[in-house]
Amino acid sequence: MTMVEPAIIIQGLTKRFQDFTAVDHLDLTINQGEIVGFIGPNGAGKSTTIRMLCGLLQPTEGQAFVAGFNVGRQPEAVREHIGYMSQKFSLYGDLTVRENLRFFGGLYRVPRHDRGERMAFAIAMAGLAGREDVLVRTLASGWKQRLALGCAILHRPPVLFLDEPTSGVEPEARRQFWDLIHELAAGGVTTLVSTHYMDEAEYCNRVALINRGKLVAIGSPSELRGHQLGGELFEMDCAPLGAALKVLTDVPGVEEAAIFGDKLHIVLSAGGITAGDLPGFLGARGIHADPPRRVTPSLEDVFVHLVSGSHETRGAF
């Protein structure tokens, strides 16, 4: 059996803007064919990391290898082997679908004999058959994003960086987008994809949680769900929610309390207040509460826990 090199190796990667550290000694290794989700609140440093991996920003410290090339020293070699979708849509709105594809095909030197077929594939994949000659700025965002993905994979890169590819896209179109990513991964393409949508983390092989430039957790969705809360999670209906939250934060045994929609999520550790005591405890303080139910933590619960543990970022997702 031959050793397969990881597609992406990140070692102590750091980026400072003046004296602000946007990415802080990040370590991460991603294997070929993996889909890794990059999750974190606004300003966590996701885009900055991806830009360094694409050779668009020079790392201040540390190093990273993409498809075997050093991103700081061999950015052009890196660019031959990656496809990138930037966070802000950045195809040419004043060019048609076909003109955009032909342009990027030219820049990536897609072999001529193959060009027609690959463009047709990208058009079909984006669901734009029949609209090849439409100006791109007139497309709805779901189509735009899929076309951008089409442009990014024209040259069949082994590594894909997608920076919030589904933001502002309809749920239905988002699902289709993820189907595409899975098809590509099945073909051996390695993907690092950042997202704000918690449900999308479930589509990833592994999820990397990043906050304030630091890697907070990494693992498969089930691994992350399985531990790390530091107690058992309960869900409770109570009113008023805000007052309940305030009262509970200082109670021994309450590891964590957070508002989730119209309910309260509470993590209780052993040795403190018990779930059965909660309604009475709150009732004595003028807060009406139903008996709490045990629930399996969602990824969101885990992230809130991890991020709030590292800092005051509760509710940032």
């Binding site: 668009l56 660019r79 031959e80 950045s90 820049l107």
Partner: peptide
């Protein structure tokens, strides 16, 4: 201005 630069320079064009 149009935000197309980032995509452009992510390609191997020199």
């Amino acid at each position: 201005e149009r935000g197309t630069m980032e995509q452009l320079i992510s390609t191997p064009v020199t």
